[in-house]
Amino acid sequence: MALKLRVHVPPHPLIKHWLGVTRDEATPSVLFRSAMTELGRWLTYEAIREWLPTIDTTVQTPLAPCPATFVNPETPIAIVPILRAGLALMEGAQALLPLASIYHIGMVRDEETLEATCYVNKLPSQFAPETRVLISEPMLATGGTLIAVMAELVQRGVDPALVRIISVVTAPPALQKLGGLYPDLTIFTATIDEGLNDKGFIVPGLGDAGDRTFGT
């Protein structure tokens, strides 16, 4: 049976709250950054359910032995923020995955052709086959940037089935393209918007996530 792209929109009230803060054009940059950090935290919380391998053991409480379950510290985990906007979600994600390695990749989109070009790549030459990868990318509009990043990861041995993507706002064109190329991906997003305008921006969206995060 063919696998299908899995897109989750968690109904958590805090995700809805912070999404509303980021959408509001009156939100100042300092509050926008805080909202993105919180969205990174809560989307990561949802994304890592049943994703992190655990080990069962026994611990000694002050009173008696007791079964306990821990996240397996030997499982390699990587967070890949897509520069620059992906940095806005990374702080919240890293707070929940403190042992994860951070690998940066920088992509810029040509506003005329909408093609993505890589300007910095700090990915390792090879990932261990069992590596879990969490990608932070606030906006999935045309899908070009994420498709380029996925190609780099797969080339380095990453299994798309072990990848989780956290995104604040997504649009159908990106989801359709990703589903066609990587049907076993899983995406966690705060919302799926109706579509794109003639410049490739998500509508209603939240504007340019990078500019609003860094006040530029």
Rank of each mutant, 00 (worst) to 15 (best):
A171V: 01
P11T: 12
V30L: 13
A100R: 11
I15T: 12
A141S: 04
L140Q: 04
L114P: 01
R156N: 06
L178T: 03
G205T: 00
L83Q: 11
V133R: 06
P129T: 13
I77C: 05
L181N: 03
Q60F: 13
I48K: 08
T54A: 12
L206Q: 04
N121D: 15
H8I: 15
D184K: 14
L175P: 04
I165A: 07
D211R: 01
E74R: 12
P53L: 11
F214H: 06
P172W: 15
L123V: 09
P13E: 13
N121T: 08
M107N: 01
V59K: 12
I102R: 10
T57M: 13
P81N: 13
L114M: 13
Q94T: 07
P124W: 13
V169G: 02
T27H: 12
G207W: 05
G40K: 11
A209H: 02
V7A: 12
V7P: 11
T57F: 12
A190E: 04
L43T: 03
P11S: 14
I15L: 10
M107D: 00
A64E: 13
E194H: 07
R156E: 07
K199I: 00
Y182P: 00
T61F: 14
N121F: 09
R49S: 09
L39T: 07
R156F: 09
V108W: 14
A78I: 11
E115T: 10
